Simulated scan of single mutants.
Amino acid sequence: MSKMMPLEQAVRENLKDGDIVAFEGFTHLIPHAAGHEVIRQGFKDLTLIRMTPDVIYDQMIGMGMAKKVIFSYAGNPGVGLLRRMRDAIENGYPRTIETVEHSHAAMANAYEAGAAGLPCAVFRGYKGADLPKVNPDIKSVTCPFTGEELAAIPAHRPDVTFIHAQKANEKGDVLIEGIVGVQKEAALAAKRVVVTVEEVVPDFEGLHPNLTVLPHWTVTAIAVVKGGAHPSYTHGYYARDNAAYLEWDKVSADRELFSKWMDENVLKATPEVFAERVKGL
């Protein structure tokens, strides 16, 4: 059975209410189109994992879809706050959410542990930090070889991981160029992996083999969505839409304006809209 399918089908067949789900991409390749499809399908009670929650998680939280967020840094990149996330935390609007905060290093190690099938990640970290005082998931263990005290946290094991990439080949291998964050680890840690791509090509002939971040057997479904990372950028295809991030700061600051924007730009939109949004970037 082909892994290639429309995004609507890929989301519907691989995500369900109450799932633990990761949307990963660092600086670029953030899977906004996939997140918008999840919003359109109206999933509930999701546990959202992301190293750097930004606009897409602000939108999902604002739509009342999240019950818990596991993260390191949360913010509108280069602009400021995640106002919908803050409203949920401070005022319980549109619902209360549980937050579990970690460091970047902890998040990366937790994905790597999940990818390795381990129950926890062990690493050097949190020395002199206050996070262990407010996050009971942060424990310490003693190295049996050196006696050194190390940090330990639960492994990330998402039910579904969504990522965006430049290319897939017809066999279903996935290629990423430019900055690679934790996409590979987040995918290998998950039970199911959905990838949106800018294009599908016959093969990767002439490209460096190390760009093939995920072989086909690690991927559940692939959907072609041109512009699928907008307003973040996709290296080699389109630039970051800085104006969209500035606009979001204003939109997200007002509950009614947020609802109107989401209705017009997400609920009534289609994946094809993303291709139009990146023209001229």
Rank of each mutant, 00 (worst) to 15 (best):
M1H: 11
M1E: 11
M4R: 11
M4L: 14
M5N: 01
M5D: 03
M5W: 00
V11G: 01
R12E: 14
K16E: 13
G18L: 06
A22P: 02
F26Y: 15
T27Q: 15
I30N: 13
H36Y: 13
V38H: 14
V38C: 15
Q41Y: 08
F43R: 06
K44N: 14
D45Q: 10
I49Y: 13
P53K: 10
V55P: 03
I56G: 09
A66W: 14
I70S: 03
F71M: 14
Y73V: 15
G75E: 08
G75I: 09
N76Y: 04
P77W: 09
G78K: 04
G78M: 02
V79C: 06
V79G: 04
R83W: 02
R83P: 00
M85L: 11
D87H: 01
A88P: 01
A88E: 04
Y93C: 00
P94F: 01
T96S: 00
E98I: 06
V100G: 00
A106M: 03
P119N: 11
Y126K: 10
K127L: 07
A129P: 03
D130E: 14
I138T: 00
K139E: 08
S140A: 01
V141C: 00
C143V: 01
L150H: 00
A152Y: 01
P154L: 04
H156F: 15
H156E: 12
P158Q: 12
T161V: 05
F162A: 14
H164I: 01
A168E: 08
N169K: 11
E170C: 13
G172R: 13
E177P: 07
E177G: 08
I179F: 15
A186T: 13
L188G: 09
A189L: 06
A190Y: 07
V193A: 09
V194D: 06
V195R: 05
E198A: 10
P202T: 12
P202S: 08
D203V: 08
D203A: 10
F204H: 03
G206T: 05
L207H: 01
H208P: 06
H208T: 08
P209E: 08
N210V: 15
N210C: 15
T212M: 05
P215Q: 04
W217R: 11
W217L: 14
T218P: 03
I222P: 06
I222H: 07
V225Y: 01
V225R: 02
V225E: 02
G227N: 07
H230P: 02
Y233A: 11
Y233C: 08
H235L: 13
Y238C: 03
N242V: 15
Y245S: 04
L246Q: 03
S252C: 15
S252T: 04
S259F: 14
D263P: 04
E264H: 12
N265Y: 13
L267R: 13
K268Q: 15
A269V: 15
T270D: 05
T270Q: 03
E276C: 10
R277K: 14
G280E: 12
G280A: 09
